[in-house]
């Protein structure tokens, strides 16, 4: 009896997940045709979703509180950019380099960060990003310093699809990479590794008591998230053919966190909804009032945190409960 209930619930969740996946892919394809003049903006949204997915893995699943995720994004961006300038303009190789660079910096910074908790961890994560930003700023001959890394010239994707002025190739490229990353992360979070990450978030002392080397597991999760953020950074460098110091900036880390909180932590899908809403509101509000657009974002975050602390993904459940009580 219990097993059949369990099986049907798992089946329902899988069906709902599949429906959402189809919806998201369809929306991604439709957006290309509906907004052909905004492909640059839409591509930035796709890249940001990858970044927020990475943050969700770290914060939403493993409970690692960080405000320095841009360190991983920026490292991937500079690594892929430098690779394109000095070695090869092949986009897929560049993505690999970005992922490796993000993963390596996450591993080494994670060795220190994962020993800390709470406020100390927050401060250290900010410090790592700031240190990297300053290093990049000082190494002007190589990185371009505050002028940004220029001279990136990408080869066609797979030797066939050249990056164009209107951003068509960039959009499809980013869309495909996003869904490859997303489906990979879906597999990871449903795996024993993903369950253990949730276990660490719920109760690290208990995980130690069942024999889990919590510290090394956290370093592993952070490294994986670093590789994903590195891919986002590399994509950004390849599509825009420019990397600026902002790629390592605090604002990027903070905005990614707000997007995740808006969408909902620990469900991957939250990264899609949070990022799309944040960036759309930002884009629209900033074009209407370039000076006061932050008020709109602030109000949105306040409303969500106050009324739906689980994020926008929790809204249907909240409404369902409300209607049940009301009815």
């Amino acid at each position: 009896m219990t097993k059949s209930i369990s099986t049907s619930r798992v089946g329902n969740n899988a069906a709902m997940g599949l429906a959402l996946d189809v919806l998201l892919i369809s929306a991604g394809i439709a957006a290309y045709f509906l907004f052909p003049d905004n492909l640059g903006f839409l591509t930035r949204v796709l890249i940001m979703i990858i970044m927020v997915l990475s943050l969700d893995l770290v914060l939403g699943y493993a409970g690692i509180a960080t405000l320095g995720h841009a360190a991983l994004f920026g490292t991937g961006a500079y690594a892929a950019g430098l690779f394109a300038v000095y070695i090869s303009g092949d986009p897929l190789l560049g993505l690999g380099v970005g992922a490796a660079a993000g993963g390596v910096i996450a591993f080494f910074s994670g060795l220190i960060l994962m020993r800390a908790h709470g406020l100390t961890l927050l401060m250290l994560s900010i410090a790592v990003a700031q240190v990297l930003q300053e290093i990049v700023n000082k190494e002007r001959p190589v990185t371009g310093g505050s002028d940004g890394l220029q001279g990136i010239d990408m080869d066609p994707v797979l030797g066939i699809f050249a990056f164009d002025f209107f951003g068509r190739t960039g959009y499809w490229y980013a869309l495909i990479v996003l869904f490859v990353v997303f489906f990979f992360l879906k597999i990871v979070v449903a795996s024993p590794f993903g369950l253990a990450a949730r276990g660490i978030q719920e109760s690290a002392p208990r995980m130690r008591a069942i024999g889990t080397p919590v510290y090394w597991r956290l370093v592993g999760i952070y490294t994986l998230a670093g590789a994903v953020a590195g891919i986002a950074g590399a994509l950004s460098a390849q599509v825009t053919e420019l990397v600026s110091l902002d790629a390592l900036g605090f604002t990027l880390s903070a905005e990614a966190l707000i997007m995740l909180i808006l969408g909902g932590l620990g469900r991957l899908y939250g990264a899609f909804f949070g990022t799309i809403i944040f960036m759309t509101v930002h884009h629209t509000a900033a074009s209407i009032d370039p000076f006061n657009w932050l008020f709109v974002i602030g109000a949105l975050v306040l409303l969500v945190v106050y009324f739906v602390p689980e994020g926008l993904l929790g809204l249907p459940e909240k409404l369902r409960k409300h209607l049940r009580w009301g009815g």
Partner: peptide, 24 residues
Amino acid sequence: VRENIRLPVLERRGESRNWFGRAD
């Protein structure tokens, strides 16, 4: 409850490091 017990079983069997395959 099932997930609570699944965690130590997977850990004991050395499977909790697996990135692929569903935990259940």
